[in-house]
Amino acid sequence: MFYTVCILFCRERTNMSEPVVELSKEEKIVEAKELYSKGSRNFLVKSYDEAADQLSQVCALYEELYGELCDELGMPYLLYAKTLIALSIEENKVLDVQDEQEEDDDDGDNEEENKENDSNGNGKLETVKESENEKGEASSSKEALPETDATATSTENGTVAPTEDIEDDAATNLQLAWETLELASRIFSRQGLNALPNLAEVQTELGNIQFENQILDEARSDYEKALQIYKDLPNTYRRATAEIHYKIGLTFLMQQMSDEGANELEEACALIDAEIEDIKKKKDLTEKDENNIKDMEEIKQEIIAKVQEIKETKEQSKEEVRAALDNFMNPVPKKSVDVSGAGSSFDPSSETVSTEVAKPKDITHLIKRKKPENSEDVPSSPAKKPTIEKN
């Protein structure tokens, strides 16, 4: 009954002074079809706000007429959920832009503060009395400013910063899209083989919600379920499956699993090539066919460039690891210095080696001197002369 409440509220708000005219069942069906047509067109031209309003009214009308799990609600549910997901993605982009602007503003403020500090430092010195007076005036002016009161008033009134509003809207849109896709899944599952392509699309959109929430393992699981549904179908859905392989590759790359990611991206390129070849086999290519070929060629080139970047990064890391292993297994020997000077060399990268030659030690005290033959000729000190006995 959620959509019924929403549509009734919108009608009451827009027609407060006008009497509510009850439409017949046939008129409600016609209105729902017209709204669905307008919502589909606005979705294609990326007017997601208008598309969401119109598709929500479609869901409310069909729910009122047939119930929330009627067959007529399958496609409106699916398109409404896709619109909500697109709205959430746009809101997240707005948040990213605001964050970048805030960072740039902070950097600019820091530069201005540094410049002011430099200019103040280079200016004339003030007396201690003047600086104290200025400090006193500044403190009194700060006490007089009602900044804290204004902040408290805004909080009491319930006002929320625009960034918080956007974040809440994005989360609400994703939550509502999830609930809507669950209803669509139940409808398509009941409809059998003919509804399997729609069921695969529902599963893909569930994966997109998980991807937006950075729940990568769950997103990959939902994408793989969608692939399995497409494989069981007799017709080929190359473009849809190529997109799924691309998104699976992104989940791997975001988890630093480069090999698995590159394989999925290459699979997407192969499917795109096959789709282009099938279109070119037509005898008379329409303008739409040529535009499709051009779009797919551009997408394929972007994917190929991404795969090449992954491979180059991987090869670079392999070379770095190989060089590190070579240095570890085959270390460069340190060169010694030849004291004699022959064939000596110096390696500035090696450790410092002392080139000073050690001086020989003094060993003269260990040599025994030979006693001279004529001891009389050698003068001796009185202390060492022998004593002569007196008769």
Score class of each variant (00 low, 15 high):
Glu116Ala: 15
Cys269His: 01
Val128Ile: 11
Leu78Lys: 00
Phe2Ile: 11
Glu137Ser: 10
Gly192Ser: 04
Glu113Asp: 15
Ser336Leu: 10
Val94Phe: 04
Thr127Arg: 06
Glu205Pro: 01
Ser47Tyr: 05
Ser375Met: 15
Asn327Lys: 13
Lys314Pro: 01
Asn198Trp: 03
Pro19Cys: 06
Leu193Pro: 15
Ile303Cys: 02
Ala274Thr: 06
Val307Asn: 02
Pro331Thr: 02
Leu44Asp: 10
Leu44Thr: 06
Leu73Ile: 05
Gln203Asp: 00
Glu182Asp: 14
Glu351Cys: 05
Asp105Ser: 14
Asp169Lys: 13
Ala86Arg: 04
Ile89Cys: 00
Asp289Thr: 04
Gly108Lys: 14
Gly121Phe: 11
Gln191Ser: 09
Ser17Thr: 13
Ser375Trp: 05
Gln98Gly: 04
Leu265Tyr: 05
Gln57Lys: 12
Ala219Asp: 01
Leu199Ile: 03
Ala184Trp: 03
Arg41Ala: 14
Glu298Arg: 07
Glu91His: 05
Lys334Leu: 10
Gln301Ser: 10
Ile166Val: 14
Asp165Arg: 15
Glu373Cys: 07
Cys10Trp: 11
Leu125His: 11
Lys33Gln: 15
Ile272Asn: 00
Arg13Glu: 14
Ala342Thr: 11
Lys28Cys: 05
Pro162Asn: 12
Asp377Tyr: 07
Ile310His: 02
Leu55Gln: 00
Asp326Ala: 06
